[in-house]
Design a protein around this nucleic acid. Structure first.
Lengths: 263, 263
DNA sequence: AAATTAATTTATCAATTTGATACAATAATA
DNA sequence: TATTATTGTATCAAATTGATAAATTAATTT
C-alpha cells in the first residue's frame, strides 16, 4: 500500500522557514567506539544525518533541541551549534550521484508532483550544524517521516552519506578534539559511573592516539572534577578498578572557567 | 534634497536571499587598543556592525568577503564564521527602543511605503556572524548605502548598538581569547614589522591581563614563527628594540598544527 | 667625553608540570 | 599458596613556567 506523505509534507512546508535547515551530529560512545546516529531513507536511497527545518516561530536552538528529541527522545542534553553551511549549490536534490535515486524515491510517494513540494526539495539551503553528546543507553532513536531505519554507526566506518555530511562529521570531530584541551568532556557521553579506563578510552578515541595510563590518571584526578566511588568487582582475575562519577558542581565550574589540559 | 533609495533597495531585495543576513565584526588594532569598525545610520538612528545580505548565487563565505571588501576595500583577509544568531524575534525593526527611530528614518526615504520593502525590513532574520582581523592602516572604510559615517571604535567603549550587537562583539572576543591558546595571531592585526612590545600589548588587550615581559618574549621566540629584523632606532633615550616580522611559512604551519600556548 | 636614564635582551633559578618507567597492590584462578 | 593480569601509586629526569635579576644600549645630561 502506498503511503501518502503529501499532507504531512505540505504541513511541514507550511509551518517551516524556507531556505534554512538544521543538521545534527549526535555522538554517542559505546563498545569502545565513538558512534553517530544515522538514518536511512526509505527505499535505501542513502544514509543521512538527522535534520529538519525551523518553525516560523521558533529559535534555531529550540529547533535543534526539538529535532534531537524527535529522533532520540532525549531532552536538555549538551547540544551546541558549531558551523553553518552555505555553499550556493547546497540543496536536497543537487547531489549528482544521488540525484536520480532521490527523485525516484520522491516519485514513489508522489512527492514530485506537487509544485510546492518540488520547489521545496529543490531550494537552496543554508544549514546550521549542531552536535550533541549523548549516552547511547539512555537514548531511544526512532525513524521519522521519510526515514525507515536508524542506527548508531562508528565514525571510523561511515557509509555513503547525503550531501557533504562526511565532511560535517569530520568537522565536528576536529572541533571536539580542540575542545578537549580546554573543557571537560564525558559527562554527557559516559554512563553515571565509569572507570578510569573507560574515560581514557574515550579520550583516545577522540584524539586518535594512545595515552600513557598513569599520566592520564594523574592529570584527570588533578582536575578535581572526579569523585571516587566504591570499587567495582569485575570478576576478572586481577585488581578491580575504582569507579568514578563527575562532581556536578566542579564539572560546571570547569565548563565555565576552562581547564589547561595539555594532554 | 531627498535621496531616493527605493530603486537601490528594491534591487538589493531582488538579488538577495530572504530571511538570512551576514554581520561582520571587523577588528583592528591601533593606539594600543582593539577597535571594531562601526557604521552610523543616516539621521543618527544608531550605530551598527557592518552587515549585508547573501546573493542568490553566492556562497555565504563569498558574501562575507564581499561585504568586508565593500566596507573596507580589503581583500582576502582573515575572515571566519563564528556563530549564527537565530532568535525568533530577530529582525531589523523588532528592537523596542530603536523601533520608532528606525521607522522615522525609513519614512524620510519613503522606504516604508513600498510593501516589498516594508516586509523585507520586518522579516525574521537568521544572521551568520563573521569576524575579521585587519590592519587598520591598510583598510579604507567607507560609508555605504544607508550609513553615512563609519569609525573605528574601541571595544572597551562601545556606543549603543543595533540589535544585540554588543553581545555579538563580546562573543567574538571570547572566541578570540580561546583561539589565542592554540593558534598564532597577529599577522592580520599588526603591521608588517613590529616590536615585541607591540605584540605583547596585543595579547594583553585580548586577554585583558598583563603579562610578564621577559617570559612573553621567551615564549614567543620559542614558537619559531618570528623572524628578527634589524633594530629600529626610536629616538628615545634607551636601548632600541629589535623589529620582527612573521615567518610566512612557519606561521602557516602553526595555523594548521596549532600551538600549545599556555600563556 | 663620561655618567645617567630608561627601556630592551638575556640569564638565572626555584617551582611546577610532563613523559616515561617502575613497582606495589589486589581479585580471581590454577 | 603461587600465578596472572590489571590497577593504583611512586619515582625521577626532562621540560616548562613564574619571578626576578643582570647585562646591554641609544639617547640625554652633566
Amino acid at each position: 500500500m502506498k503511503q501518502d506523505l503529501r499532507p504531512q509534507m505540505l504541513k511541514l512546508i507550511e509551518e517551516s522557514l524556507p531556505g534554512v535547515s538544521i543538521e545534527c551530529v549526535i555522538l554517542g560512545y559505546g563498545e569502545g567506539q565513538l558512534k553517530t546516529l544515522l538514518f536511512q531513507t526509505k527505499h535505501e536511497v542513502t544514509w543521512s544525518l538527522p535534520g529538519g527545518y525551523i518553525r516560523k516561530y521558533e529559535d534555531i536552538d529550540e529547533a535543534a533541541h526539538r529535532i534531537l528529541e524527535e529522533r532520540t527522545g532525549l531532552k536538555s542534553i549538551f547540544l551546541k551549534q558549531f558551523h553553518t553551511f552555505g555553499k550556493k549549490d547546497r540543496s536536497h536534490t543537487n547531489n549528482r550521484e544521488q540525484h536520480e535515486r532521490i527523485w525516484k524515491a520522491l516519485e514513489k510517494f508522489d512527492l514530485n508532483q506537487d509544485p510546492l513540494i518540488k520547489d521545496w526539495m529543490d531550494q537552496r539551503l543554508i544549514t546550521m550544524g549542531y552536535y550533541a553528546l549523548v549516552d547511547i543507553r539512555k537514548s531511544h532513536p526512532r525513524p521519522h517521516f521519510f526515514f525507515e531505519k536508524c542506527e548508531w554507526i562508528s565514525v571510523e566506518s561511515l557509509p555513503e552519506l547525503f550531501l557533504q555530511q562526511q565532511h560535517t562529521i569530520s568537522k565536528v570531530l576536529d572541533h571536539l578534539r580542540v575542545q578537549l584541551n580546554y573543557l571537560p568532556i564525558g559527562r554527557s557521553l559516559l554512563p553515571e559511573k565509569f572507570t578510569m579506563q573507560n574515560l581514557q578510552k574515550l579520550y583516545e578515541i577522540i584524539l586518535r592516539r594512545p595515552l600513557v595510563r598513569s599520566n592520564f590518571q594523574r592529570k584527570m584526578l588533578s582536575l578535581g572534577i572526579l569523585v571516587r566511588m566504591e570499587k567495582h568487582m569485575t570478576g576478572a582475575p586481577n585488581k578491580a578498578p575504582y569507579q568514578y562519577c563527575f562532581d556536578r558542581e566542579q564539572y560546571e565550574i570547569a565548563l565555565k572557567k576552562g581547564i589547561g589540559f595539555n594532554i
